[in-house]
Simulated scan of single mutants.
Amino acid sequence: MTELVLEKVSRWYGNVVAVNDVTMTVGPGVTGLLGPNGAGKSTLIAMMSGFLAPSSGEVRLGEVPVWRNVAAYRDLGLVPEREVSFSYLTGRQFVQASAELHKLRDVRAATRRTLELVDLVDAADRPISTYSKGMRQRAKLGSALVHEPQVLLLDEPFNGVDPRQRIHLMELLTRMGEEGRTVLFSSHILEEVEQIARHIEVVVSGRHAASGDFGAIRRLMTDRPSRYVVRTSDDRRMAAALMGRESVRGVTLGRVGTGEAITVEVTEMGQFTLELPRLAREAGITVRELVPSDESLESVFTYLVQS
């Protein structure tokens, strides 16, 4: 029971609609929930974790509703964005309290194992009030992981985490995804999502804007041309040959990165990939490099927000 299903889920506060008719399925592996600040990501995670009731629609863990279902918490772990309220506790006490709430058979062993997992053993007996932001984040993660949930939800988990801790956390989430657990984390920082989550769910202004592999999502955006960088043995002649082709919207010749290259805006990718080698062969030109220049998650996100 590791699949989260949201079916026509909405949440409003008075006249303010935070989430509007979202349907999505989050399965095993690492999924990035992407959107700008205020897009509704935190509200969605709160509903997924059973801490907030949908105003309409339903959130299920497998076939079981999450809201008002205490048994579902055994399979869920939540790392909220908000700070730890019980900062007077030590890291060990904080993680152990979660183990006791879940009525684990060996609370001390579970606490010890989890502190090792989140790299907090050395600071385990210090009050959380003395922790750095990154250490507090790891304490929250430990509390969410102590009962070994099959589904882990994290709200902006990389905020305030230093580079070393960021790498450790990314490796941990990746490993959990590879083990078959369902891991979903929200972020408004594009490179965070791109590094560890090939599958993304994009939320913009409370609405579900896109779902899937970010490269595949980009290729479906046929109303906006793809952009490629082409380097050849004769860029000027190649650029002239490409101009006026039906599959090409625009051609620019100039410096790209460390050298000269052709930037081509393509409206029909399939047709372009057939035409380019044919034109090069007819002109006696060698194509040395052909790479997409806008396949990054940033390009996808910018397009979706602007739409």
Score class of each variant (00 low, 15 high):
Ile200Glu: 13
Gly62Asp: 08
Ala124Ile: 04
Val84Arg: 08
Ala71Met: 05
Thr2Leu: 08
Leu34Glu: 14
Arg126Ala: 06
Arg105Ile: 12
Phe51Leu: 12
Asp223Pro: 12
His188Thr: 10
Pro80Ser: 09
Val266His: 00
Ala210Cys: 08
Arg237Ser: 05
Arg278Phe: 14
Val70Arg: 10
His147Pro: 03
Ser299Glu: 15
Gln271Phe: 04
Arg231Asn: 05
Arg218Thr: 14
Gly177Trp: 15
Arg227Leu: 15
Leu297Arg: 05
Tyr88Arg: 09
Ser211Asn: 15
Ser143Gly: 14
Arg92Asn: 06
His147Cys: 07
Thr258Cys: 07
Thr130Met: 03
Glu178Ile: 11
Leu34Phe: 14
Pro54Glu: 08
Val9Cys: 01
Gly14Asp: 15
Phe301Glu: 06
Ala39Thr: 04
Glu171Arg: 06
Leu152Tyr: 05
Leu253Pro: 01
Leu141His: 05
Glu191Leu: 10
Arg108Trp: 13
Glu83Phe: 13
Asp162Pro: 11
Val151Tyr: 00
Tyr131Ile: 02
Glu171Cys: 08
Glu116Gly: 09
Lys8Phe: 00
Met238Cys: 02
Tyr228Lys: 06
His102Met: 01
Gly38Met: 11
Met238Arg: 03
Leu44Lys: 06
Arg219Gln: 15
Met1Ser: 11
Met221Tyr: 13
Gly62Leu: 04
Leu274Gln: 15
Ser98Pro: 12
Ser186His: 09
Thr302Glu: 13
Arg218Cys: 07
Thr182Phe: 04
Ser143Glu: 13
Gly14Arg: 12
Gln306Phe: 07
Pro127Met: 00
Leu172His: 02
Gly35Asn: 08
Val22Glu: 10
Val70Thr: 11
Arg108Ile: 05
Tyr88Val: 10
Asp75Ser: 13
Gly32Glu: 08
Ile200Asn: 15
Met47Phe: 00
Ala72Leu: 02
